[in-house]
Structures are given as structure tokens and as C-alpha cells.
Design a protein around this nucleic acid. Structure first.
Ligand SMILES: [Mn+2]
Ligand SMILES: [Mn+2]
Ligand SMILES: [Mn+2]
Ligand SMILES: [Mn+2]
Lengths: 218, 218
DNA sequence: AATAATTTTTAGATTTATCTAAAAATTATT
DNA sequence: AATAATTTTTAGATAAATCTAAAAATTATT
């Protein structure tokens, strides 16, 4: 039996492990989960005992294959529920994450299988993140951060790095959604802001925005 | 903040309070929740402190208005989710209860409002139980147990008392569903079994079955 | 290489929900 | 009314997840 708390730690280790180092530090998990390092040490020991993680003192944690399977399964549920909320219940993309954080822990094989079918096997969630298939396979498209695009590049928005409500509302306000086409007109060396051309209008976005928006070039 | 455990106790007190006495006994709750009486005493004290229940030592517990509102809200969620599982995800009525037990605790006003709309404001769940409206109002139809029906009564099945998988599968196997029409042909005084006429065929059901099937006469 | 700063772990408490065993109160039976 | 049976409560323990404060180990800086 795996508890909700254990699931959240596993998810955190998975996400942090993706973005850089394999051995995820105690402090990194603590910050992510909003708990104290001492609590993380305890939990990471438990996950190790249960076979979900490898852990040696002072060396951080990594997920075992078993742990990874759990992580991917939770992420699959999370993203399918997000699709459901947007497609079927008319939520907007900035309102879904918190609800999906709860729904991802519902335990029923059949539920998620049927939900997947009901949504007609979506491949990406409303934030552009790929949905792992039943076997845990994740096929990610090649996307780059808008901040990495070159002047003259014609891009399509395909995802967000940060899916906080504040950031998503900013994009809504400025008519940027997934699928929106844009051209990089100028990159200001001084502050790394980017001038983009969206629906025939020029528009300047800060480096922070450009650093959180994924695009596909070409 | 109300915990999942507190919600389950409140739901139990509500259900037990309906079926008979107002002051629900410690033992009754313990049996229902599958816990020990001593645990119930502790929790009932806490619910009382938090204003969800009235409790005096050795006198059992009743829900306050606040407690009742919580109970009805959980029941509303439970039943809406059951409708969703059957109508949208092709679950059968004997598979939904356990999943709904989990889903009923998801916290999001908008979620349940939108789900209700998505399901087109259903009035009853797949077991024939009424779904409380947004304000908490429950309009129940007048139904009786089949065991109470008289010989010659033409009935329509409208609900089940017991919604265990075993009972529901029994009904499925014998082609009895909500909406099925039947006529009471005979009531055997010796064992209280009931002979019914369903789709032009006679069929004997035990008293136990007749005691768990709700019908509308006329 | 020694010292300082930071990170991580340990030790001990706390909170929530549970349990067992015993005591107290209530209810039923003689 | 006294005794027996049952129900309910209390007292004390336990498990999960958290916390604070202090100790230990690691990493960075002089
Ligand atoms: Mn999300
Ligand atoms: Mn997402
Ligand atoms: Mn149910
Ligand atoms: Mn039901």
C-alpha cells in the first residue's frame, strides 16, 4: 500500500531528477514539497525501504524502476484529469492544477483507462505536457524556450514551463495560447527581452516570460 | 479545515441518523466505519468541538445544521460522481461505489458545479438514490420495499437498499434493473419469499432480495 | 590544510487517528 | 432492588508524518 504522502514525494523526486541531477538532494525535495529537510530524510529512508528509491546518507535520492513507474502513473493521471477539466468541464488552464493534484491520487485502474478512452486518448495536457501512455511511455516533442529562439524564427507556442495561475493569466491577457504563431523580431541584449510579432502586432515580452514559454521553430 | 476522516464520520452519523434514531450510538458508528468504539468517542468529541455534531457522554451523537450541510454536500458529490462513472465512463452500477468513496472527498466548488452541469443535472444516482441540489435540498420519491408490496401490485423498480456488488450482480443476472416493471404474483407466508412476474415470466425471489429492492406501486 | 559555511542527519516532541485493556455508566435480567 | 450483561469512556500505546534544535558530514573559502 502506498500513501498519498509517499506518492507526492515520489513525484517530487521524479520531477527534480528530470531537471538536472539524478541524485536529488534532501533540501531540493524539502523546498519543492514545502516541508523540512529532516522530514525528507525520514521519508526518503522509508521510500528506500519500500523499494521506491535508492538512498545513501548524504548522497541524495534517485527513484528505482519501481519508483519511476509510480511517478509516471501519477503524472499520467494528473494530466488526463487536467484534460478532462478543460475539455469537458470548461475549466481554464490556470484553474486545473490544484484540482488535478487531488484527483491524481484516486486509485482505480479502470477509472483511468476509461477516462483516457472518454477523452479520446489525448497526447498532451492543456499546458502542452505529454501524457504518458498506459505502458508508461512518454513521447515528447522537440520544443525550445522562446528565449532560445533566434531573430527571424517563426514559432508556434507548444507549452509552458511554469504553469502557475499568474503566468497563465498573463498569457491569456495577451492572447497567447498553445497553438499561437509568432515571429521573433528582436532580442534586446541589455535585458534579454524579446520582441515578437503576434497576429500582425509587435509586442515586447520580458526575459522571464520568454524563459517560461516553450515554442516549436519552423 | 475538515479532514477526510472527519468527513467520513459525519457521513456515517448522517446515514445512521436517517435510518431510525436521531442520537447515533458510538457502537453503531464504530461498526459502520469499521473502527473501535474508543476511536469513535475521540472523534465525536472533536466533531463536537468543531461544531459539526452535538454530543453528550453516553448519549450518542447528532449532527448540527453545520454538520448536516457537510454530510449532504458529500452525498451530493458521491452520487454525482456515480452518475458520471456510469453515464460517461461505462462503469456498471456494481463497480462505482468504491471509486465514488474516494472522489467524494475532492475539494473544489467549481468542479462539482461543472460536473453537475456536464451530467445535465441528474436527480438520481445509478442506484436510484436522490441527488441533493446545490442548496442541499433532497426530493425523494415515494418508494416502498418490494417485500411491502401487495399481491397483484404492478411495480416499477426504482432503487436498491443494499448497493453491494454482490446484490447488484444478482439483480443483473436476473435482468432486474431500475425501470424494470414487475407484478407481485404471490407472497409465501412460510419464508416470506415473493413470486414476481417479470417480462412475462414468473420468478421467485427470497425475502432478503425483496427486502433490498425499492419499487413504486401503480 | 585549516577554518567557515552549508547541507544533512539525528534526537526528541507534537499532532492525528488509531488500538487494547481497564474502568465507569447504562441497560437488561433475574 | 440487586446482579449481570452490554455499552461507552478513559488511560495509555502505537504508527505516520511532521517539526525544532543540535550534532555530524560535506563543501567552499581562505
Ligand atoms: Mn498540473
Ligand atoms: Mn499540466
Ligand atoms: Mn455509493
Ligand atoms: Mn449510490
Amino acid at each position: 500500500m502506498i500513501t498519498l504522502t509517499e506518492e507526492n514525494y515520489i513525484k517530487s523526486i521524479y520531477h527534480l531528477g528530470k531537471q538536472g541531477v539524478n541524485n536529488v538532494s534532501t533540501n531540493a525535495i524539502a523546498k519543492d514539497i514545502k516541508t523540512k529537510a529532516s522530514s525528507v530524510t525520514d521519508m526518503v529512508k522509508k521510500l528506500s525501504e519500500k523499494g521506491y528509491a535508492d538512498y545513501k546518507k548524504y548522497q541524495g535520492a534517485t527513484l528505482t524502476e519501481k519508483g519511476k513507474r509510480v511517478a509516471v502513473s501519477i503524472i499520467r493521471k494528473h494530466r488526463l484529469w487536467e484534460v478532462f477539466l478543460v475539455e469537458k468541464l470548461n475549466f481554464s488552464w490556470d484553474e486545473i492544477h490544484e484540482v488535478a493534484e487531488q484527483l491524481e491520487h484516486i486509485k482505480s485502474e479502470k477509472l483511468i483507462k476509461q477516462l483516457d478512452a472518454f477523452l479520446e486518448y489525448p497526447t498532451h495536457d492543456p499546458h502542452g505536457d505529454p501524457i504518458p501512455d498506459e505502458t508508461g511511455k512518454i513521447k515528447s516533442i522537440d520544443k525550445i524556450l522562446l528565449s532560445q529562439a533566434q531573430i527571424g524564427d517563426a514559432c508556434i507556442c507548444v507549452g509552458v514551463q511554469d504553469s502557475s495561475s499568474e503566468f497563465l493569466k498573463y498569457l491569456d491577457k495577451n492572447n497567447i495560447a498553445l497553438g499561437t504563431e509568432l515571429i521573433v523580431v528582436h532580442k534586446e541584449p541589455f535585458d534579454n527581452s524579446v520582441t515578437i510579432l503576434v497576429s500582425a502586432k509587435e509586442f515586447i515580452i520580458s526575459n522571464m516570460i520568454a524563459n517560461n514559454l516553450f515554442v516549436k521553430v519552423g
